[in-house]
Nucleic acid binder design. Structure first.
Lengths: 341, 341
DNA sequence: ATAAGTTGTGCAATCGATTGCATAAACTTG
DNA sequence: CAAGTTTATGCAATCGATTGCACAACTTAT
């Protein structure tokens, strides 16, 4: 069973024609006669011919690979985006190579370089939390390799982007709480200045302002957005005696952490405190009470990112205004913020 | 800024030597003099030479790619395994191509073929739920491409495997419930005959037997192990008036679903009913009460899988007894099963 | 019937790195 | 010092597909 793989030369030999003709026949080149094409494809099937992508990659300079770089793979959000990218890519006979930076800048740099090295045809990436220096991405652009950024992006690179309207998400979350009658709304956000969190915060402030509620810096807690940060953030507020009646957390994890603390203290959710998270993680259905959150449509984001990538691939040297696609988030109301007043 | 990439020929030309010498110098071939090696590496740095993997893949027949096939990427378990594989692979200068079958047999088949087609050096895979026919995997083996199966495996293929001791996991979970004083233990398992669920069930039955508790088929609920299946499974039992005081679910999701129903009915957890899940998903900390579960060490599983892969790579034609590595799971006790009696 | 165009294939170079074999130069050794 | 070794490098083919150019065989137009 270990027959060598058939090549176009094998096909050519059997048919007494040359490899070039076979190659053209398989690519449906108009210069080849119908009869020859049929003979070639028949013989190809007979020999179970599988084109060697590596050879054609070498010759054509195209690897049919897209490199995808994400901070971390085991978040519903990122893996769903990847799935979205894959769906589009596979349909166009491209493969996807996924790498994680694990939020470590050094990894991000080396992984980007490794991908360039592997001659991927382009890169789709989301920035790490701590990424300040963008040289490695600039390098990608300079080499003429198509680059698409999604979600955690930056405007400091002239390249295509897909983002969620995080501002709107923050606004919707906050407005929802206000309409439910909450007034003193805590906000969990990050210490670092990642675009998405800044935008969510901006939405929060705008909603407050629109409803005539003064912004209070004391109500803002800054952390790393993990479960633990939510626990500590809310604990500190309680200790400091800060009065609040709701939480809008830019992360579902931190929101869940805060809920745990509050419940342990006997604070009722949503009666005493309403809670809204962000991202609509899988577990938002499973907390008690279920957590209201902002849904982001990550699959669609993947689709769009891949689409932008293929667009860029088709117009290599043409670098007009990079496109920025903004997707709309959606508020998913669950019990954690539903006060029956 | 768009200078062509340097090749070994460029280096050779500049140094008045041939490409073969450059190639050997870079690979640290002992036949090349130290002086030449230094000159070559210096010049390589100067020109920012990056080896073209595609060219060497073509020549050597090695793509430096590992294909990984998983049923679904956005499960903590699978993404952690992938991360484990990546860690090992990257250290050895291999890249990982991840594909999802989405539990669809047709996708699994086509993705396997696509990977073979892309000339990956080997495949690491976990079977889809509904995969019965193993021809596509047999095909991989027949072509002499190293294959490692993990978690959802089969003994019908002569190839390396890494699995968790699911039997032990099932046993530990059940024994724990028994020791907490629960006697009538419901078990959630699958309809299909995937190895891991069968083993967990076997552990469940053995533990019952060891503690002198008769096995009762009425207490077994078979479904697809999603949240919804847990909801329906337990609802049906309640309707049928089946008496139980604990649940061991082979899936955290189904366990969470059951908890939701029980709480809504006013059943107290863990006082009235104890619950144990399986997989230690991220959300197990977040349910109310937190869910006791079986931890699987997926990163380590990834490490081992990659290790087995590289072993197989080094001994190509040598096919002795395929190795089967079994990892130990761990019981993580949380409030859902802690009855203070 | 001859010039001009069309059609279908073949030839050979190319992508970049690798490698078996050959060979020149330098070095040993009896 | 001749013969054998070792050392360092070059030559040229190879991996498999692609592609610009050439060209033979026909067809059409004048």
């Amino acid at each position: 069973m270990k027959s060598k793989k058939a090549t176009i030369h094998d096909i050519a030999k059997k048919l007494n024609i040359t490899a070039s003709t076979v190659s053209r026949a398989l690519k449906n080149d108009p210069r080849i006669s119908k009869a020859t094409k049929k003979a070639v494809t028949d013989k190809a099937n007979e020999l179970d011919y599988q084109p060697n992508h590596i050879a054609s990659a070498l010759r054509s300079g195209k690897s049919q690979l897209i490199g995808v770089v994400v901070p971390i793979i085991d978040r519903t959000f990122f893996s769903a985006v990847i799935r979205g990218i894959e769906e589009v890519a596979y349909g166009l006979n491209y493969r996807v190579v996924v790498s994680q930076s694990n939020e470590i800048v050094k990894h991000e740099v080396s992984t980007i370089n490794a991908l360039l090295n592997a001659r991927v045809d382009g890169i789709i990436a989301s920035l790490g939390k701590n990424t300040r220096d963008l040289e490695h991405y600039q390098n990608v652009i300079d080499k003429g390799v198509p680059l698409v950024l999604f979600d955690r992006t930056t405007d400091d690179l002239l390249t295509n982007q897909v983002i969620i309207d995080d501002y709107l998400g923050g606004y919707m979350a906050t407005e929802h709480l206000i309409k439910q009658g909450y007034r003193k709304i805590v906000h969990f956000t990050t210490v670092n200045a990642v675009n998405i969190y800044k935008e969510r915060c901006r939405g929060y402030r705008q909603a407050l302002s629109d409803y005539g509620i003064p912004f209070d810096e004391d109500l803002v807690s800054r952390g790393d957005m993990q479960l633990e940060d939510g626990i500590q953030g809310i604990t500190k507020m309680l200790e400091q005696g800060i009065v609040f009646d709701a939480i809008f957390s830019s992360s579902d994890y931190a929101a869940a952490g805060a809920m745990q603390v509050l419940k342990k203290k006997g604070v009722r959710i949503p009666e005493d405190v309403g809670v809204v998270g962000f991202s609509n993680e899988q577990f938002t259905d499973l907390t008690d009470p279920p957590l209201t959150s902002i849904k982001q449509f990550p699959m669609e984001m993947g689709h769009v990112a891949a689409q932008l990538f293929f667009d860029a691939l088709e117009h290599p040297n043409k670098k007009p205004h990079p496109k920025k696609t903004v997707l709309q988030p959606e508020l998913i109301v669950r019990a954690s913020s539903l006060r029956n007043d």
